[in-house]
Design a protein around this nucleic acid. Structure first.
Lengths: 210, 210, 210, 210
DNA sequence: AATGAATGAGCGTTCATTCAT
DNA sequence: CATGAATGAACGCTCATTCAT
């Protein structure tokens, strides 16, 4: 998550810079702890200790623990969705846009495993304060992938019998689970090999055999 | 989970049968609640209320909440692994065994969504009491899938560039995530259509184009 | 405590012999566990496990855990008081009766350390079910010692300035604490040396210097 | 215990003073309740009610109930041991140091009966968290008494046949038990008369008759 | 902005006791 | 006489949240 938040930190000098930095510090700590222990398992005490600030300060910046989690999800997925949009605009075909998105997604999860764990653990959990915004962001992500699949299908570039709804979910899930598995188990695997495997998988699962 | 546990319940109408039935009742309730709320989010109070028994009774049968969760995982995954072994022995080729396993896996998760949710949520969580047995069972599952992938690869029935380690994880993750997504979002999807989509996906992601 | 209860055990053959044996078995186990853990710290589960019987059986023989504790105290102190009476009757002077009593007391505690611990721990505890009978028995014990001190004082055999009330308590307390201390710490100390020390102490603390 | 802790409270009116005062308040309440009911019998709820604070606060200041008990023992016995050292340094002979220590000990227990009860009840209990520190403090106390007994013995001021190890334990035990007995039973007894009895006892049990 | 003491509801667990068999 | 499954009240402890400073 460091990368995601650093931008905010560097905006010092202006008014509110200190506050923004503290907020970022807290969110950074929150991803780490929540990724490790899960939302319910993480405690505010642990988060503030990891951040090196007092408990009162955390509640000055966020109205609740749930809001911290919300912010992580919003920031992380929102940023990803923005990138997906940019990739779609830049790509000249459905498959190339799709590959670009999946690659970006895989890199992000691979490099922010705590965020990935949090995302996976909470994705199917009901009754969370952030469930609403979570679903929206998730749908936005899936929608963008679906669009490219449809575009490819319409162009005859992927197999016609593919159900784009199903396919979008399958690809996202595949990326999430492999990333988490490889991060935990096979720490010797290089990011490049991992991404290559992902791309190869996506290509063959979808592409029309010529 | 009902199906998984019923067998144990029905054996022995005699002495000890009552205790075994209560144990099954509790495990059944535990899967439901834990699947819904997550391990940490689930409370023993909710579990015993769901089971319709007193709290003390839960601790008469299980020494802790963690042991309840452990038992669910052991029972569920252990049974699945046994079925995988049977499928492998009955199949006449790697791909057919592979398809059989994935189908069985998908059906099981589709029909026991709470179990699936629990499995996904806890798979990458560290420091759980059951982490050890979880990893063992998970490895057993993955190992069986890997074997069939290797068998198929050796027989030239799937693409030679496939990394069987990666592929096994990718398939399991794909099944888990699609099952959970479809159960939650698209309740109108038929089990048959869903399974067909899975099989089609697996076939094209791996099988050698003839 | 074995010695105290053995008598009851041997009365087999008559009706109720089995029941009496079980009762003794349970009391024996109760002294051990309660002596080790204290009354509140001991659990009925532990007691019945130590006795090798079922929990239901314990409640068949005793109406509560408190009654078990009560019985231990009644049996133990009651027996001791009876012995004190016999010693008083057999002795030809206050000091010799006193020495006899203290010796008997010391031997009993030395040989039944769990009983001693229980006795010491609960002696000054309020609000116990057995507090009443405990105090009565304790008073009976102290009364018998006091009588002999008074007898000795009247006969000019101990220092006239001695407060017999205080002295009785002091002697009993000294025996209890030294026994427990020596049992725990200096297991190599012989019973004989220990008793000799006790007797020497009692003699000099009281006896009139000639 | 009030006296023992008040000193700590009054120092520093500044920052941290509030926390220290609360800690003292809780310890004070803990001695009262634990002395009355025993360690296992005392509940944290009772302690915090006695202190007039919330339960959470108790766990903010102490990490467990056992640590509260530990602190009581450490503070109480540690302070006593320090006083013993001062007495030993100020005294001009073994017997006078000994008498001074016993007197100080008796006064302390007499004026803090709950502390005394706790001390007696837990002294011979195994498996407590504080067993280690308890034993150390107890040994320090006994060691200091032993030293003075030995000094007196070497100087020919007490009977040569006295076993100083045994004697130290006997004196401490005698003080403890008489204090507790008199506090409970004879509330009309004056502290002065009580202490005089103690001193008289110690003198005659040990001192060489001239 | 920032601290950390204080709160109280609720959690996992224990355990004396009851009761159907 | 004997068993052991079942109960429920209460215990030690945690933790999100508040608030005086």
């Amino acid at each position: 998550m460091v990368g995601m938040i650093k931008a905010a930190v560097s905006q010092r000098g202006e008014k509110g810079g200190k506050a923004r930095a503290t907020r970022a510090l807290l969110l950074d700590a929150a991803v780490k702890v929540i990724g490790r222990k899960g939302y319910t398992g993480a405690t505010v005490d642990e988060i503030v200790e990891e951040a090196g600030v007092s408990k009162g300060l955390a509640y000055y910046h966020f109205k609740s623990k749930a809001e911290m989690a919300s912010s992580i999800l919003d920031d992380g997925i929102g940023e990803l969705a923005d990138e997906f949009v940019a990739i779609a605009e830049a790509a000249d075909s459905g498959p190339s846009a799709l590959i670009g998105m999946i690659e970006r997604f895989a890199v992000k999860i691979f490099e922010n495993k705590e965020f990935g764990r949090f995302f996976v653990s909470e994705l199917w959990r009901e009754g969370r304060v952030w469930s609403g915004s979570m679903r929206e962001n998730e749908e936005r992500l899936l929608g963008l992938i679906r669009e490219q699949l449809q575009r490819a299908k319409d162009g005859g570039l992927i197999r016609p019998e593919i159900d784009v709804d199903f396919e979008a979910v399958a690809l996202v899930g595949m990326v999430l689970t492999t990333s988490l598995y490889y991060i935990d188990e096979k720490t010797d695997v290089s990011e490049r090999d991992f991404i290559d495997n992902i791309i190869d998988f996506v290509r063959h699962a979808n592409v029309c055999p010529e």
